[in-house]
Amino acid sequence: MHKFENKIPPPIVVLFVGLVMWGAALVTPVQAINQMIQISLIVITLCLGIFFCIAGVVSFKLAKTTVNPLKPEAASSLVSSGIYKVSRNPMYLGFVLFLIAWAVYLASFIAGLGIIVFIIYMNQFQIIPEEKALKILFSSEFEVYQLKVRRWL
Rank of each mutant, 00 (worst) to 15 (best):
V13T: 04
V13Q: 02
V14C: 02
V14W: 00
F16G: 14
V17I: 08
G18E: 12
L19N: 04
L19Y: 00
V20F: 01
M21E: 07
M21N: 05
A25F: 09
V27L: 11
V27K: 11
T28C: 04
P29I: 08
V30L: 07
V30A: 09
I33H: 03
N34H: 08
Q35N: 13
M36E: 15
I37C: 04
Q38R: 13
I39E: 14
S40M: 09
L41R: 12
I42Y: 11
I42S: 03
I44F: 01
T45H: 14
L46G: 06
C47D: 07
G49K: 00
I50R: 02
F51T: 05
F51W: 06
F52H: 03
C53Q: 08
C53K: 03
I54G: 11
A55K: 05
A55P: 06
G56S: 08
V57D: 15
V58M: 12
S59D: 03
S59V: 00
L62T: 13
A63H: 03
T66L: 09
T66D: 08
N68V: 13
N68D: 15
K71L: 15
K71F: 12
E73A: 14
E73M: 13
S76T: 15
S80N: 08
S81C: 09
G82L: 01
I83T: 06
I83E: 07
V86N: 05
V86F: 12
V86G: 10
S87M: 04
R88S: 02
R88E: 01
L93A: 04
G94F: 00
F95L: 09
F95A: 13
F98Y: 09
L99V: 07
L99W: 05
I100C: 11
I100R: 10
A101P: 02
W102G: 04
W102C: 02
V104K: 01
V104I: 10
L106S: 08
L106I: 05
A107E: 13
A107Y: 06
A107N: 11
I115Y: 08
I116K: 08
I116F: 12
I116Q: 12
F118K: 02
I120W: 11
M122W: 06
M122A: 11
N123A: 07
Q126H: 01
Q126M: 02
E130C: 04
K132H: 14
L134Q: 05
L134A: 05
L134T: 03
I136A: 15
L137G: 08
L137Q: 12
F138A: 04
S140C: 00
E141F: 01
E141W: 03
E141C: 06
F142K: 02
E143F: 07
V144K: 06
Y145N: 09
Y145L: 12
Q146Y: 04
L147T: 15
K148H: 02
K148V: 03
V149H: 02
V149A: 03
V149T: 05
R151L: 08
